[in-house]
Design a protein around this nucleic acid. Structure first.
Length: 472
RNA sequence: GGCGCUAUCGUCUAAGGGUUAGGACGAAGCCCUCUCAAGGCUUAAAUACGGGUUCGAAUCCCGUUAGCGCUACCA
């Protein structure tokens, strides 16, 4: 039974790289009919905030993927400590009383491996100083007498190996008694019987330490799959300070992405189904996902200062917007309109759906229903300069007002009837139908672009059409 | 500095010894058309560099360069 976990630390918003890690874990879990675990790695009490936890939680919920089990490391500290002392009990860890280094005292060419005098300290002295209340860090005693290589097979990066002589004596417990990330993570992974650790490539070199911990714990070794990182166009790591809103999933939510559109985009960063498919449903992604399809190089999120949205993300979202089932899209559009303070006319659900359907191929985000698609749902819409120009052609305004009266004179109001009426009226007035067609679109929607104009008439509806044409 | 990872169009990627190096986004052009999208067609655009191995290298090996990650109580 496959068990995977996504383990964010609540020190900020949900980063898009983290979101992708979550998605890949989820995909793998679903593909293998396994269990997806959300675990909050909150052992750094200095930096954790409840606000951050909520924002991560919100971000994950927005993805609409879900999880099966939930844990918080802060609820499990006793387990972590017990496991750390178990390692100490086997003499595979020792107390280090060296005060924390405030400044990096790196000596060039001489890698730090452990502090002098601590590894070799007798159990008696170590116990005495601890009993006297002297603060200490519990460190893992990396084997150094025999030169051994720590090895593992990564499902993405292949065979990995590092000499134990190059691994420093890392901390298990901080001087404040809190477990470090390495300790807590491995203790939980062992206890929760995680079978596959799927995480960012920034943990690739930490894996050697984790393998030593798993061995000391006599726990079975999980499989590892490291994921390439998401980076900025200049090759640097994505950071909020440097790159702003592009790094947070809330940006895409607030920009009007449909969750699956963004999930689909993230999947294509560092992974490929290898058959040229790009727009894929959730089920197609689950069916196609494997670590073999994950690439090794880091993937660039393509954005600029002027536009924080990757053009491909926008395109993919547009694809989903115009192909997703209308019954799935319609409520999302309603919610977006409502959030923008727009109450659409009460013409019934069939009207709403067909109107959404008519405009969606021209839009890329949900938000655009409140801007470029506004005139169909709201009375207050702007008239663009181009639209104004269409209305100012010859005697267009006068003719459109005349058209309003013709429409008012007959109860029939279908695409066909309006078209017949308009064309007859144009012929009568001796003008090209295009004059009225373009003018009507401008008057009814405030824009020169949009669906076929006769559909626009029925989408706007008889009453609103007559009213809008009269006041042109 | 040490250790590790990586390198195909601007970006995401396919091709894992033999291809005119394929697709997508973005860009440009054409078709369609009441406008704009959508859709269809077309064009420009890549194997970082240098050595090997081989009849043959984007693909395997070595080196260089560049980028990234980890590196003393952050995750």
């Amino acid at each position: 039974m496959v068990r995977v976990r996504f383990a964010p630390s609540p020190t900020g918003y949900l980063h898009i790289g983290s979101a992708r890690t979550f998605i890949f874990n989820w995909l793998f879990a679903r593909r293998q009919k396994g269990t997806m675990i959300l675990r909050i790695d909150d052992t750094d009490i200095e930096r954790n905030t409840e606000e951050s936890l909520n924002s991560i939680y919100d971000g994950l919920k927005w993805l609409e993927l879900g999880w099966d089990e939930f844990y918080r490391q802060s609820d499990r500290l006793e387990l972590h400590r017990a496991m750390a002392w178990k390692i100490f009990g086997k003499d595979m860890a020792y107390r280090d009383f060296t005060p924390a280094q405030t400044e990096a005292v790196k000596q060039d060419g001489v890698p730090w491996l452990f502090n002098p005098g601590m590894r070799e300290m007798s159990r008696e002295e170590s116990g005495r100083r601890a009993a006297a209340g002297e603060p200490f860090v519990l460190r893992f005693r990396v084997p150094r007498d025999i030169v051994t290589d720590v090895k593992f097979h990564d499902q993405v990066y292949g065979e990995q190996s590092k000499s134990a002589a190059d691994i420093e004596d890392f901390a298990l417990l901080r001087s404040n008694g809190m477990p470090t990330y390495h300790m807590a993570s491995c203790a939980d992974d062992a206890d929760l019987r995680i079978t596959h650790i799927v995480r960012g490539q920034d943990h690739l070199s930490n894996t050697y330490k984790h393998i030593l911990i798993f061995a000391a714990l006599e726990a079975g070794l999980p499989a590892f799959a490291h994921l390439p990182l998401l980076i900025a166009p200049d090759g640097s790591k994505l950071s909020k300070r440097k790159h702003g809103p592009v790094v947070s999933v809330t940006t895409y939510r607030d920009a009007g992405f449909v969750p699956h559109g963004y999930v689909n985009f993230l999947c294509l960063l560092g992974w490929s189904p290898k058959d040229n498919r790009e727009q894929m449903s959730r089920q197609e992604l689950v069916d196609a996902f494997s670590f073999e399809g994950v690439n090794r190089p880091n993937a660039v999120v393509n954005f600029t200062e002027a536009d924080p949205i990757d053009p491909k993300a926008l395109w993919l979202n547009a694809q989903h917007l115009r192909t997703m089932p209308i019954e799935d899209l319609a409520p999302r559009v309603r919610a977006t309109l409502q959030a923008a303070g727009i109450t659409p006319p009460d013409y019934g659900e069939p009207w709403f759906r067909s109107t959404v359907d008519a405009v969606r191929s021209r839009l890329s985000t949900l938000n655009e229903f409140t801007t470029r698609g506004r005139a169909y749902f709201a009375g207050d819409y702007e008239i663009t300069a181009e639209a104004k120009a269409k209305l100012d052609v010859d005697n267009a305004r006068e003719l459109l007002r005349g058209l309003a009266e013709r429409l008012a004179a007959t109860p029939e109001f279908t695409e066909a009837s309006v078209e017949a009426l308009l064309r007859a009226y144009a012929a009568e007035a001796g003008v090209k139908a295009g004059l009225l067609i373009n003018g009507a679109r401008a008057a009814l929607t405030g824009q020169t672009v949009g669906p076929g104009v006769f559909h626009v008439f029925t989408a706007v509806g008889r009453e609103r059409t007559i009213e809008r044409l009269r006041r042109v």
